[in-house]
Amino acid sequence: MISLSNSENSTVNTITLTKRLARAMRLSGGEFSLLLVCCNSIQRQQQVLNLLTEFLSADIHEIVLSPGADKLYTAITTEIGATQPEALMVRGLESVVAINQLIISTNIMRNEFRKQFRFPLVLWVNDEILCKLVWLAPDLKDWAASTIRFDLPNNQLVKSEQQAISA
Rank of each mutant, 00 (worst) to 15 (best):
M1H: 10
M1R: 07
I2C: 03
S3Q: 13
S3V: 14
S3W: 09
L4I: 12
L4S: 11
L4D: 09
S5V: 08
S5M: 10
E8M: 15
T11S: 15
V12Y: 10
V12E: 15
T16S: 11
T16I: 13
T16L: 12
L17S: 11
K19I: 15
R20C: 13
L21R: 06
L21G: 08
L21F: 11
A22Q: 11
R23N: 14
R23G: 06
A24S: 14
A24N: 11
M25D: 07
M25Y: 05
G29D: 14
G29Q: 10
F32K: 02
S33E: 05
L35S: 08
S41V: 01
S41L: 03
S41E: 05
I42H: 00
I42C: 01
R44P: 00
R44N: 03
R44W: 00
Q45R: 06
Q47F: 01
N50E: 07
N50G: 05
L52I: 02
T53V: 01
F55P: 00
F55K: 02
S57P: 00
D59Q: 04
D59F: 00
I60E: 02
I60G: 00
H61V: 03
E62K: 03
E62F: 00
V64G: 01
V64W: 02
L72N: 04
L72H: 02
Y73S: 04
Y73F: 12
T74F: 05
T77C: 04
T77W: 04
I80G: 04
A82I: 04
A82D: 09
T83S: 14
P85A: 08
E86V: 03
A87T: 04
A87M: 03
M89A: 05
M89C: 09
V90C: 05
V90I: 14
R91M: 09
G92R: 07
L93E: 04
S95A: 11
S95F: 05
S95H: 06
V97A: 07
V97M: 06
A98I: 03
A98E: 09
I99P: 01
I99E: 05
N100H: 06
I103R: 03
T106L: 06
T106P: 01
N107M: 08
I108F: 09
I108S: 05
M109I: 10
R110F: 10
N111R: 13
F113C: 13
K115D: 10
K115V: 09
F119V: 13
P120H: 09
L121Q: 12
L121M: 14
L123I: 11
L123N: 09
D127R: 07
L130I: 06
C131T: 10
L133S: 08
V134N: 13
V134A: 14
V134S: 14
W135P: 01
W135T: 15
A137C: 13
D139G: 12
D142C: 10
A144R: 07
A145P: 03
A145L: 10
A145T: 10
T147C: 13
T147P: 03
R149C: 14
L152R: 09
L152T: 07
P153M: 11
P153K: 08
P153S: 09
N154Q: 12
N155L: 13
V158Q: 09
K159Y: 09
K159A: 15
S160K: 12
A164F: 09
A164I: 04
A164Q: 13
S166H: 08
A167L: 14
A167G: 14
